[in-house]
């Protein structure tokens, strides 16, 4: 499996660069991963990442985008509870990009 070198530590990632072990995740790592894509993590970004990690802890799966939108709306106000807002934060797709920074496995679509 592929390895990523971060702060002198070897971290296992999958073929698309998602962490294999949720426990390897740190805030620094999230910022590092985001920076690779040219994104500086703001409060708004963290809101999403934190929600994803919380949700994952409970359900062992990343939430579907609909739920994410709803929850962000609840937390950040209804004007931010839409897909457009999330795509502004994560141009590569909120599911894919945010999950990566949150240390979650790559989300699956329909199988």
């Amino acid at each position: 499996m592929a390895m990523m070198d971060f702060q002198g530590k070897q971290i296992e990632v999958d073929d698309d660069g998602y962490l294999l072990n949720l426990d390897d995740w740190t805030k620094d790592l999230a910022e590092h991963l985001a920076k690779q894509d040219g994104i500086d993590l703001s409060e708004a970004h963290w809101e999403v990442i934190n929600f994803l990690r919380e949700y994952y802890k409970q359900y062992q799966i990343a939430p579907m985008i609909k739920i994410l939108v709803k929850e962000i709306g609840k937390a950040m106000g209804p004007e931010k509870g839409n897909t457009k807002y999330l795509y502004e934060l994560y141009p590569g797709g909120p599911a894919k990009q945010a999950c990566k920074y949150a240390g979650l496995p790559k989300p699956t679509g329909c199988v």
Binding site: Y59, Q60, I61, K66, I67, K70, T108, V111
Partner: peptide, 16 residues
């Protein structure tokens, strides 16, 4: 299931 939805995740999804 394929997606790995645990029982409460299925219910959460359908509740939505």
């Amino acid at each position: 299931n394929h997606l790995g939805l645990e029982p409460h995740a299925i219910m959460n999804s359908i509740e939505g």
